[in-house]
Amino acid sequence: MNLFDFIAGHYDYWFIIILLAIGLYGMTVKKNLVKKLIGMTIFQAAVILFYISSAIKADATVPIIMENLSVDNPANYINPLPHALMLTAIVVGVATVGVAFTLLILIYKNYKTLDENELLELMK
């Protein structure tokens, strides 16, 4: 029963762990650089989901003040801090993916390939 409570009470973390493992698999096993970038994006999404899931409180509502809910009791509203942090992290993630694509385009223009093994051969 205790183990069942543990598994059911942390169920969002299991999905996040699966996403982190998929992201790490994409970054380490795959040889194509674009697939590595996709793995990195999945890893980033998992970290963002972890932060958002840490903001939640039972029986609380979104952090926008309503008239019939008092602000004096912080249990009425969920934690606004992870939302504000992840809001900026998402847009910065888009910008860094743009930089990564720029580097990939330059690599392709110089070496005409994006495969890791061929690149290591060509760079010798």
Partner: peptide, 12 residues
């Protein structure tokens, strides 16, 4: 200020 939103989302 009154609903979900702000500069980042609106800019996107």
């Amino acid at each position: 200020h009154y609903s979900p939103g702000g500069g980042f989302q609106g800019g996107a």
